[in-house]
């Protein structure tokens, strides 16, 4: 809840600032004490909260994954194994449905993306003030707990996927084939000169669509999660506006959280499915 000394806009801004570690203007290294200070740190700074939560959640995932994998048996599955198998089969079916090539990387990649994004998004359902307040109690002033509301996290994954699509495009089709895909379509002609003329036009069109893939992938997730988080923050402000509005805000928060369960799952699923589709396109000649 917003402190007495904070205005609503300060409260929102406070909630949307990452815990940033970097070089201060005076040359010393340390945590930024305000949003403006964090901005001044430029590229060579790191969002400690985003890194911490995402690695913690990813670590949880691979810890339980490894635990299941170590005990996995082809006999009657127990509780955790049952759940893991259900997930694995769900991902496997999705991959089989949209990915026509053979690549042992794609299914585990899809699983990692789905679970990691889902867990990151799930942090959105923790009431917005709980963890920042706990962090404040131990002297940490900024704490953004949902890594997928940080564009660094979503772009990190999207660029990872983009690099994989580039790698497999070039590996499967060769440099020539990949360049041809970029320059010889959608416009083509039998006349060599016209074909040559079309190359820059095609390149511009294809390059934009190529670049649009990772950007749309990252921004879709970021936008949805950021907006969801923003609404939670706005609802939280209502708690300060008296009992009636506060109760109303409680109902709203519950409603939005229930609706958000759908969104976080859907966004994780969309990210995963698009990753599979992009990789499938990288594996297929047109």
């Amino acid at each position: 809840m917003a402190g007495d000394t904070l205005t609503s806009s300060e409260y929102i801004k406070h909630h949307l600032t990452n815990l940033t570690y970097g070089q201060h203007a005076d040359g010393s290294w340390g945590l930024a004490h305000s949003a403006a200070e964090a901005k001044e740190m430029g590229f060579w700074a790191i969002h400690v909260d985003t890194m911490f939560w995402s690695i913690l959640l990813g670590g949880l995932f691979i810890y339980f994954g490894k635990k299941v994998a170590d005990r996995v048996s082809s006999g009657v599955p127990g509780g955790l194994q049952n759940f893991a198998e259900w997930l694995v089969e769900f991902i496997d079916n999705s991959v089989r449905g949209s990915f026509s090539g053979r690549n042992p990387l794609v299914a585990p990649l899809a699983l990692t993306i789905f679970i990691w994004i889902f867990l990151q998004n799930l942090m959105d359902l923790v009431p917005v003030d709980v963890i920042p307040h706990l962090a404040g109690a131990i002297g940490i002033h900024f704490m953004k707990v949902v890594p997928s509301t940080d564009p660094n996290a979503t772009f990190g994954m999207a660029i990872g996927v983009f690099m994989l699509t580039l790698y497999y495009s070039i590996k499967i089709k060769g440099v020539g084939g990949f360049m041809g895909e970029l320059t010889l379509q959608p416009f083509s002609s039998d006349n060599a000169i016209v074909k040559l003329l079309f190359i820059p036009i095609n390149f511009v069109l294809e390059f934009v669509s190529l670049i649009a893939k990772p950007i749309s992938l990252a921004l879709r997730l970021f936008g949805n999660m950021y907006a969801g988080e923003m609404i939670f923050i706005l609802i939280a402000i209502m708690y300060n506006a008296g009992v009636v509005l506060g109760l109303f805000g409680g109902v709203l928060q519950l409603g939005w959280a229930i609706f958000h369960i759908l969104i976080i799952t859907l966004q994780a699923f969309i990210f995963m499915t698009l990753t599979i589709v992009y990789l499938d396109m990288a594996h297929n000649d047109h």
């Binding site: 990452n18 994954g65 990387l105 990692t112 660094n152 996290a153 990190g156």
Partner: peptide, 21 residues
């Protein structure tokens, strides 16, 4: 802000994918 976190996330993503696989 887009900063070093991007690269950190990219690397941890790669590690998680590798580990999962």
């Amino acid at each position: 802000n887009i900063n070093l976190t991007l690269i950190g996330q990219l690397l941890s993503f790669a590690v998680f994918v590798w580990f999962t696989m």
